[in-house]
Structures are given as C-alpha cells and as structure tokens.
Design a protein around this nucleic acid. Structure first.
Length: 311
RNA sequence: GGUGGGGUGACCGAGUGGCUAAUGGUAGCAGACUGUAAAUCUGCCGGGCUUACGCCCUACGUAGGUUCGAAUCCUACCCCCACCA
C-alpha cells in the first residue's frame, strides 16, 4: 500500500465531520486535508458548507479554495495535490487527517487510479465539445463500440470511455485492468453514521440556514464575475438551486426544500459508497449522534492504540 | 340555490367498457460507479403467499345499478373549483 498510515474520517454530508475534526485537534497534532469536490472551489463558502475562517484559524485545512469556479478539477488532480499535502504536513511533524465525503477522491488518494497517459488539453477540449453534442443513446453506443468492456453507467461515464479510447488509443477497460498508480496513504477509515431521521433533520436545518445566511447572494456574486451557470464550481447542490432561482426557474420559497431533498439523495449515495466501496479491513464505524468532543476522544484513543500496536 | 368542470395509488398526473395493480413524473428504498463524482446511471416501488412459473386479497370520492366484464356507462349522495344568483 501507499505507506503512511493516515486516519480518514468519512460520512455523509451533515453528519458532523467538521466538528469532529476540530475536536480532534485537541488530542492529536493534526492538519486537515479536505476530500471534498465542492469545497475545492474558491468562494461559494455557504453553498459548500466550508469550515469558517475562525475554524480554519484553529486548525489548518488543505484542499479548500484550491481553484476558481470556472476550472475543471478531478479526482486525479486531487490525489496528486493531497499526496503533496500529506508530505508537507508530515515534514512539519504533524499528522495528516483526511476528512471528507467525496468517495472517489478518497479512493484516488488511498488506492490510486490507473495511470492515465498524458493527453493534450487541446485535444481533450475538442473531444469534449464533440461528446457534449451527442445524444445520451448515441454516447452509449459509441462507448460500447470503442470499448467492448465498457460496463455502462450513463452518459458521463460513456463520454469518459470515449475520451480515453480515442485519445489514448486504448479502451478504458484496458487501462482499468492495469495496475493502479499513486496510492499515497494507508488509510484507517472512520465512518461516521447517524440514524437516518436525525441526518434528515440536520440536512433540513442546514438547507434553511444556507439560504438565510446568504446563499443566493453568494451565488449571484459569483455569477456576476462572468461564470456561466454550468461552470464546474457551480455544479453543486444548493448552488444549483440558487442558480435556478436566479434564472427565474424556481420560486424563492422552494429553494430551501429543494436543497434539502437533493442533499438527502446525495447523502444516501454517499452512504452506499462508504458501505460498499471502502477497501481494506481498517474500517471503524462510529455513531456520530454523540457530541463531537466525545467522538474525537474515542477516535484519538483508537488511533493511538492502533499506532502503538502497528509499530 | 343554479350551471359547468372535477374527485385515480405517498404526491402530481394519464387513462373513458376487457390487453389495467392501472402510462408518465416526483418522492421513497436498494444498488453501480478508477481522472466532471454534491456528478452520471441501474433496479424496485398496494398488500400477502411462493425457490420459481404463479396464486390470492384490496384499490381509481361513497353507496347502489347496467354488463359475461367497469377506474371507464347509469342513479343518488358527499366533497372541491369556476361562473351565475
């Protein structure tokens, strides 16, 4: 595996990952690496529920505000960036703590991805423009033709399969069958869970709060910078609903509930991922209904016991 | 009080005699997912029994009726909406 043993705190949105990370700072010399595909984007603080400035002052965070909303980021990019942060944090004699809900990013960091050959950005853009014009059915047909091993999964994955096949000369399934590269950490997973009704309640409250604290104004100001509504950084729950409202496609008083519904569905997908996709036997599941400082205490204890046992 | 329109499964909404447990959509549940992943998709979705083919029950406002057969036709009643009084 990747070597460095690192605690990785995961769980659906609104379970309280941020609070636990902050509380953990009282027990361990940690710095946080946020594994969150939305918090990567600058501004959009309310819409992505980033830790506040004060919280970040108390505990160093990496992986926030990395790119502009108009820039396309990726799991591979994250794996490289995060690997670098891990190294930097360790050089400071501190402990990297991965915290986040983006399963694929965490997988990319912990297990690596297949080694993708270099692709000219211009060629990729040209192909993007091509696939963007295809009908979903067309897209799937092309994907199947170019890659007999294509396992399906919708137009976006089909576009990816087409891109890889055409730009590398080898089908996606070929690359996937090859060895992974880039596993940078040896993860110790802490999965936070909470009974579904509790989570849904927290999600509903959080959605209301977002709107009350100025989500719509925040999104409006980013749009005013000249970003299109479909910019990579604007493709997130909450932000999307705000954009729809600003474009007159949704009444204001429905924004919060629409956000809550979409967030609930997302939380479900996350839970499915963490239930079925985490690899390895270093997985601990903890009930996050308890106060964050109690949880942090338990995590710290488990971690220390694990370290002394392992070394 | 009169006239017209309408009451369909958790919600919206098709269906106007058999092919209907009832198109679609939403919500919900389960799942997939190696570089857009807060994305993109798949399955299930009245209840019960069955390993399975399948079987049974309940269901289209309520109660009756017509018919071999009704969510669909008729009658009465209840409720909702619009307009007229």
């Amino acid at each position: 595996m990747g070597g460095v043993s690192v605690p990785v705190v995961v769980g659906p949105t609104a379970v309280g990952k941020t609070a636990v990370a902050l509380a953990l700072a009282a027990h361990l010399p940690v710095e946080v690496i946020s594994a969150d595909s939305r918090q990567i984007y600058r501004r959009l603080d309310i819409g992505t529920a980033k830790p506040t400035r004060r919280e970040r002052a108390r505990l160093p965070h990496h992986g926030l505000d990395v790119v502009e909303p108009g820039v396309r980021y990726s799991a591979g990019q994250f794996a490289r960036d995060a690997a670098r942060w891990v190294g930097e944090i360790r050089n400071r004699g501190r402990l990297p703590l991965v915290v986040g809900g983006t399963g694929l990013y965490i997988r990319a960091l912990a297990e690596g991805l297949f080694h993708e050959p270099h692709i000219e950005p211009a060629r990729r853009r040209a192909l993007d423009a091509f696939t963007a014009r295809l009908e979903p059915l067309e897209l799937l047909r092309w994907a199947g033709r170019l890659d007999p091993g294509f396992t399906g999964g919708g137009r976006q994955r089909a576009a990816r399969a087409i891109e890889i096949a055409l730009l590398t000369g080898r089908p996606l399934s070929h690359w996937q069958a090859a060895a992974r590269a880039g596993a940078a950490i040896d993860p110790w997973y802490v999965v936070l869970t909470v009974p579904r009704p509790v989570l849904q309640q927290r999600i509903a409250v959080r959605a209301e709060e977002m709107v009350r604290r100025g989500l719509i104004e925040e999104v409006a100001s980013v749009l005013a910078e000249g970003h299109r509504g479909d910019a990579p950084g604007l493709d997130g729950i909450g932000i999307r609903e705000a954009v729809e409202y600003l474009h007159g496609q949704r009444p204001r008083d429905e924004v919060a509930t629409a956000i809550a519904v979409a967030t609930r569905q997302y939380a479900k997908r996350q839970q499915t991922w963490f239930r079925h996709q985490l690899r390895g036997d270093a997985i601990v599941t903890l009930d996050a209904t308890r106060p964050a400082d109690r949880l942090a205490e338990e995590i710290a204890t488990l971690w220390q016991r694990r370290q002394s046992g392992a070394s």
